[in-house]
Simulated assay, not measured.
Amino acid sequence: MIDLTLIPKVAYDEMNAVHAEEVELLNNIENLLENSAPPEQINVAVDLLLDHTREHFANEERLMQEINFPAFRMHKHEHDRVLTEFQYVILDWRNKKDNSILEEYLTSDIPAWLHQHISSMDTVTAQFIAMSKKDI
């Protein structure tokens, strides 16, 4: 399980709230996997996480565009890369019906990526957003 207190905080509260929601969704899936939930239940939880992630990234990208964030393309590229990777993992899991595929990705790869991404790209982005919002 991801300990929310260990997730870095950024200078824009809206982003922190979205990150907390994402951690909750990830922890829910981990709980389902640990308790051998039926594939249908895991599938619903995975779809919720995927939808949330798409919305999370789209909102963040909209904010970056509104303030003309200089590193928009680089940040968006990283979002696109992770979404594509996540979709491939889901497809692989659905085809092979092997929970270890999903478990490895969502309990190891994504938490590590999330921490790194928030610590770097999101921290800089949030500072820029916070400064820009003060000027409005």
Score class of each variant (00 low, 15 high):
26 L>W: 04
133 K>H: 12
128 F>E: 10
86 F>M: 13
74 M>R: 04
71 A>K: 12
28 N>A: 12
85 E>V: 05
104 E>D: 07
57 F>W: 08
10 V>P: 02
123 T>Y: 01
39 P>Y: 04
110 I>E: 09
37 A>H: 05
11 A>I: 08
39 P>I: 09
91 L>C: 07
52 H>R: 01
92 D>Y: 10
126 A>W: 06
134 K>I: 07
53 T>Y: 06
55 E>R: 13
64 M>V: 09
125 T>P: 03
52 H>C: 06
14 E>M: 11
27 N>Q: 08
15 M>R: 05
34 E>C: 08
106 L>M: 14
67 I>D: 06
87 Q>M: 14
53 T>E: 07
8 P>C: 05
51 D>N: 15
14 E>F: 11
67 I>Q: 01
36 S>A: 00
70 P>G: 01
108 S>A: 15
54 R>P: 00
91 L>P: 01
68 N>G: 01
70 P>S: 01
29 I>T: 04
68 N>A: 13
3 D>V: 05
103 E>T: 09
100 S>H: 12
106 L>R: 01
68 N>E: 10
55 E>N: 11
1 M>G: 14
30 E>M: 07
56 H>I: 02
132 S>V: 12
120 S>M: 07
95 N>F: 06
23 V>Y: 00
5 T>K: 15
111 P>W: 13
103 E>Q: 15
136 I>M: 11
76 K>Q: 09
11 A>W: 14
1 M>V: 14
20 A>Y: 04
25 L>G: 06
45 A>M: 02
122 D>G: 13
11 A>Y: 11
43 N>F: 14
59 N>A: 02
128 F>I: 04
13 D>G: 05
35 N>K: 07
31 N>P: 03
3 D>K: 08
7 I>Q: 11
98 D>S: 03
39 P>R: 13
104 E>S: 05
91 L>F: 02
105 Y>W: 13
18 V>E: 15
32 L>D: 03
63 L>S: 06
134 K>W: 02
126 A>P: 04
23 V>C: 07
119 S>W: 08
92 D>L: 12
36 S>C: 07
111 P>M: 05
132 S>D: 10
84 T>V: 08
30 E>R: 13
48 L>K: 10
54 R>I: 14
93 W>C: 04
41 Q>C: 00
21 E>M: 03
117 H>V: 09
7 I>Y: 10
93 W>G: 06
36 S>W: 04
74 M>Q: 08
50 L>T: 01
33 L>Q: 11
73 R>H: 08
10 V>Q: 09
99 N>L: 04
66 E>A: 08
39 P>C: 09
26 L>K: 00
105 Y>P: 03
112 A>L: 12
42 I>F: 09
2 I>S: 09
90 I>S: 00
77 H>A: 10
111 P>A: 11
69 F>Y: 15
88 Y>T: 03
78 E>W: 02
54 R>M: 05
72 F>A: 07
49 L>K: 13
32 L>H: 01
71 A>D: 07
20 A>L: 01
63 L>R: 09
22 E>R: 12
85 E>T: 11
108 S>F: 11
79 H>Y: 10
124 V>G: 00
15 M>G: 04
46 V>Y: 02
